[in-house]
Write a protein that binds this DNA or RNA. Structure first.
Lengths: 154, 154
DNA sequence: CTAGGTCAGTTCAGGAATCGAACCAAGTCC
DNA sequence: GGACTTGGTTCGATTCCTGAACTGACCTAG
C-alpha cells in the first residue's frame, strides 16, 4: 500500500492541515486512534471493535507507528505479540477527536451518544474552546476567520 | 458514487466520531472546507487551489450541501453560476480544522506554516484548549481519558 | 499427540473509488 | 466568429479497499 499523502496538491502543500490529514486523514486512522484512547491495544481487539479488514488495520498500524503516533511494544515473546500505545504525539491528537465528537453530538443528533473522552482528573466530560491571548477572551467557533480573507460570513 | 458512511462497523456505530467522519472523514472534504474558511466559494477556485479532480469536487460539494454543511447560492443567472458557503453547521467545524492545524504545526515541523485561522475580532492567532466545568480548570490534551477505560498511559 | 482455538498477520481475487483527460453547454470578451 | 471562462459530466485506467482464505507460532483440553 502507498501514499495517502498528496505532496503539494495546489499552492498549499505546506499547510499543516494538509500535512496532518496526510497522516490521519483517511477513513480508518482516526477510528483506530479513538480505540487507542479507549484503551484498546491489541490487533484483534481493534479489529473486532471496528470491523476493519485485517490488511487495512495492519497497514494503518504500521503507518501510525512509522509516523510516531503509536508505539509498538512487545508484551510476549512466546508467542511473539505486540501491542500498540499512543505516544505523546498520539495523545496530543485528542483535541481533534474531541472536536469531532462535540460536533457530531451537536449536529448529528445521535440519540444517546456514548461519551468517549473525559477529563482524567475527575472523570467528567468537558468543553473545548478557543482562547485569544491578545484579547484575553474565550470565544466560540463562529468567531474564527482566516488571515488571507476575512470574508467567511454567510 | 455512494456511501462513505459505514453504518455500524463494530459495536460503536452510534459514536459521534464515527458519524462525523462519515461526513467529513475522507481525503478531500476537510480540505474543501478549509478552503471555504479561507474565503474560496467557487467551484474552479477550489479546484485550482486543491488540484482535486473535477468529478470528485462535484461529488464532495453535493455531499456537503446535502449534509447541510455548505449552502449553494446562485450568484448569476446568465450564465447560471452557484457559489458555496459555510452554513452555521459548517462554521462550527472550525475546532476540528484548528485542532488539525495546531497538531500539524507542533509535530510535523513545517518550516513556515501559512497561518490559516485567526480570531475574527482581532486578527491574531489563538489557542485551543479544554475546560472542565466540574473542576473549574483549563487543561491540555494529555489529561484526556476515556470513560470505558482510564488506561491510556504509555 | 492430536484437535481445536487464539493472535497477528499475509496473500489474493473482485469490486469500489479515484485519477487525469477529454468533452459539453452556456455565456462573455474581443 | 474564435477564444476563453465556469461548472460540470463521461470515460477508461489505475489505485485502493474489501472479504475470505491461508500461514505460523503458540496454548489448552482430552
Amino acid at each position: 500500500m502507498s501514499d495517502l499523502v498528496k505532496q503539494t496538491h495546489g499552492s498549499h502543500g505546506s499547510c499543516s492541515i494538509e500535512q496532518a490529514l496526510g497522516l490521519v486523514g483517511d477513513r480508518w486512522s482516526l477510528l483506530v486512534l479513538r480505540d487507542c484512547f479507549r484503551g484498546l491495544r491489541r490487533f484483534d481487539e481493534i479489529r473486532r471493535d471496528l470491523g476493519i479488514p485485517r490488511a487495512v488495520l495492519a497497514d494503518r498500524l504500521r503507518r501510525l507507528v512509522d509516523a510516531g503516533i503509536l508505539s509498538r511494544r512487545r508484551y510476549s515473546d512466546h508467542p511473539p505479540r505486540d501491542e500498540y500505545r499512543l505516544t505523546q504525539m498520539g495523545r496530543e491528537l485528542s483535541p481533534i477527536l474531541v472536536a469531532l465528537m462535540h460536533w457530531g453530538d451537536r449536529w448529528l443528533q445521535v440519540g444517546d451518544p456514548p461519551t468517549v473522552l473525559i477529563h482524567s482528573a475527575c472523570g467528567e466530560p468537558f468543553d473545548l474552546g478557543f482562547h485569544c491571548t491578545h484579547c484575553a477572551v474565550d470565544f466560540g467557533p463562529l468567531e474564527v476567520a482566516s488571515r488571507q480573507s476575512e470574508a467567511i460570513l454567510p
